[in-house]
Write a protein that binds this DNA or RNA. Sequence first.
DNA 1: TGCTGCATTATGGTGGCACACAGAGCAATT
DNA 2: AATTGCTCTGTGTGCCACCATAATGCAGCA
Lengths: 301, 301
Amino acid sequence: MAKPSIHDTPALHRSLARDMLRRWQSLGAAPGARLSRLALAKELGVSRTPVAGAMALLEALGVVESDGRHLLLRDPGFDPARLGGEAEGDAIDAFIMRLARDRRMGELEDEVSERQLQARYELGRAVVADALRRLSELGAVTRNRGHGWRFAAGYSSPEDRAASYRFRLMLEPPAMLEPAFALPSGWARMMREKHEGFLSRRWGATDPVAFFETNAAFHAGLAEASGNRFVLQAIEQQNQLRRFSNYDWQRGEERVRVSASEHIGILDALEAGDRAEAAERMYRHLAGTAALPWNGRRLAT
Amino acid sequence: MAKPSIHDTPALHRSLARDMLRRWQSLGAAPGARLSRLALAKELGVSRTPVAGAMALLEALGVVESDGRHLLLRDPGFDPARLGGEAEGDAIDAFIMRLARDRRMGELEDEVSERQLQARYELGRAVVADALRRLSELGAVTRNRGHGWRFAAGYSSPEDRAASYRFRLMLEPPAMLEPAFALPSGWARMMREKHEGFLSRRWGATDPVAFFETNAAFHAGLAEASGNRFVLQAIEQQNQLRRFSNYDWQRGEERVRVSASEHIGILDALEAGDRAEAAERMYRHLAGTAALPWNGRRLAT
DNA sequence: TGCTGCATTATGGTGGCACACAGAGCAATT
DNA sequence: AATTGCTCTGTGTGCCACCATAATGCAGCA
């Protein structure tokens, strides 16, 4: 087991290997090309050490060959996805999601201490502390004045929910009218297909989560297309908040169909080049969703 | 020196003491009133231990008197500000400000390691790491893939500056039209006085910083009045970003006068109850400021 | 000269430990 | 019965050392 394997290899090495592979493919590099570790290091903005590690990994996979001293590219067609860990969601993100799930299930008290969480989830101090800090920035959790943390009670309250929608109403429609607004090529088609999937398939048990993520990606994608990083940041934050707090997850099939077709309508307008119409539809979409009665139970203050 | 003094007393104790003092004053508590530590603890959402500490502090200051067993209120008029540490700016905040200043002075490289910063500023690792993480959330600094951090080069770039203003243009005017919008009583008058100070006084050397903070407080105050916590959060983030990156700090007297009078104009409209007019003026104010040529030097990419 | 392997140094994440302090139970006091 | 002092346990933070790994210097080589 001394050979470098895909697993148990430093994350940075894998990540660099993936990046290089992608770059070779997009540049159409031919097998047999000579590679310089030093040049690669400069290109990637990193020192030679991790580059050497990445190349060792690629050599073990037969993508690259070392004739003692020099590196030769052998199989540039290797699928980068096989290097795994693509969306190596932060350990912190993963933990936040577990917290969200357990909270939803009612398996987690309102008031917790960092130690409890450390023990319960078998995590290091750093991860727990970071996650709590991030959640507190979202407003999902607050520090007690003394010890411990408290999951914000009013967190999924109707007031917060309304504030969230009003906030998005201020941002999302105008974002589509930004002068720099431009969708990445292929994005609209990809999104459309995902949404149509929800309309044509029968509604399954795992679909609520899948639809939530599609929905989040839709809104984040449009925010990104606005070209304004602050808008993107704000929308991603809203997504994370909703992901954590379970807004809307239980919306039910009927409402999902409505949402999906509204999204598709927005895509229609965008592809027709009518951004004003798209913004208008976005406004109605958000306002309509906001006005829905919400079936969450009201927590005690 | 064994007596509890204002200093070297746990921050929580001081903070609780301040809170209680404020509450007594706003409730108009009379001297001689009996106090129960247990009741106070419940009120403050904290255990009896820190409450006891806070009361010991107040006793040392003569605000409260202990007849062996019971607590009596003696001097409810004591000025809470004398307890000091009011805006006990996080060590982290203070450090961030030092970084900002040194960066502005060009005394800090583009690329730094945590150790360097630790050594240079004689701080613990935790403070440095936290500060960098917070700055990275603002986008002011980014992690290198390997080791080290890099101050975002394009950070005060014209593009980012424009994005920031466009973001605020989307939020701030509509925020003033929110149905729940309501200014705290006295806020408008207080703000007006501050601004008029800048118009009437001669322009001094320390005024740029003071005006920046007044300006930030003005915008944050309006955001808060909107009643939407997401709006407030976004605006505060923008303030912190601008504070760090030194947008506008060197605007010069003439421009400050214009800004101050535009702010006063907005206050006029609000006090007249004409929020539509106020929002319109806010829009013009932001758009006008955004269009200013910016005299910052452009950093190399 | 430009690159490599090897060796050295520096970095940042992690875990253990200690300390100051918050929380909570209990007997005593009124 | 309510509240307090006392005490003990639990909590979070700072400090330190360790370790995997990234950066870098250097001699050798094409």
